[in-house]
Nucleic acid binder design. Structure first.
Lengths: 150, 150
DNA sequence: AGCGCCATATGGATGAATTCGACCGGAAAG
DNA sequence: CTTTCCGGTCGAATTCATCCATATGGCGCT
């Protein structure tokens, strides 16, 4: 992990669709070497995958919200069941176990407030493991680039 | 936006590095048509960009946290200055204006707790516009695929 | 409904450009 | 001196951009 690897990762996390020549120039290496670096980083697992970043708003997902969740008990079984719920429920973009008054923080993206209600009241609160939730609706996205500060 | 477009977007948001042939098969169209659909969706802006998803943990970013921020006043100037701060500060992956007791919710990713302290105490709380913050540290990532439920 | 007509969608083909994978000789580092 | 890193080359595979012929789906008209 030297400066070139960082430049490779930085270039790819910003735009993985660059032509080889442009990519190599951005990295500051020859094509062959820049690509070798990239392949090594893919092989090592530091690059998890390549994905398309979609415009949620334009696709009709008007509501992004952050939902805090507190479980009823804290048994292993409850945690496992909630984990399965989170993994299988569409519309959940991220889910983290967090410190603080709540147990989990979910980032969700749905079509409208009805969708949020269905998710919160219909899915989360209906689940046996869930005690209570608190939702915060995203009014505006100031930044959403997921860029690691390499 | 028919079912094929949805399949194209779904395939790409999961894995944008598929070979053309595999991509077309996943979509259920011929190569030429599947690619035409993809190009149209790129052109329309529904596909914002292609990016590499990096393994933050393996890269030494051990701490992910969610930081609620409340501004001192709610003048336009304050909001604008805070927006600039957020845009320019490395380590902030997302920033949203949200409903609730706080004004903003930031997702940050830093090397360690010192890095979080530097960001919260050194950057955010030092800023003129910021009244108070509340940090929640991610103890575990249950889900992080950012998959829209197309 | 039946019929022609048009715009669009589709699958396939083509040659050009790009990417890939492997290789090579030289430079740099240990 | 040996290992690793680098830049460049080569042919093969893939992707790209374009074209073509057909198929499909409305749409107006009878």
């Amino acid at each position: 992990m030297d400066e070139f690897d960082r430049k490779v990762l930085n270039s790819l996390q910003r735009n993985s669709a660059l032509a080889r020549a442009d990519f190599a120039q951005e990295v500051g290496l020859s094509e062959s070497q820049a690509v070798r670096r990239r392949q090594a980083l893919e092989q090592s697992g530091l690059i998890r995958r390549y994905r398309a970043d979609l415009d949620a708003r334009a696709l009709g997902f008007a509501v992004t919200a952050f939902v805090h969740v507190k479980l009823k008990g804290h048994s292993d079984g409850n945690a496992r069941r909630f984990r399965d719920l989170v993994r299988l429920t569409p519309g959940i973009l991220e889910a983290h176990a967090v410190t603080g008054d709540f147990d989990y923080l979910l980032k969700v993206c749905v079509a409208d407030l009805d969708g949020l209600r269905d998710l919160v009241n219909g899915v989360l609160l209906m689940h046996q493991t869930v005690d209570r939730v608190r939702s915060e609706i995203a009014l505006e996205i100031l930044r959403d680039d997921h860029l690691l500060a390499l």
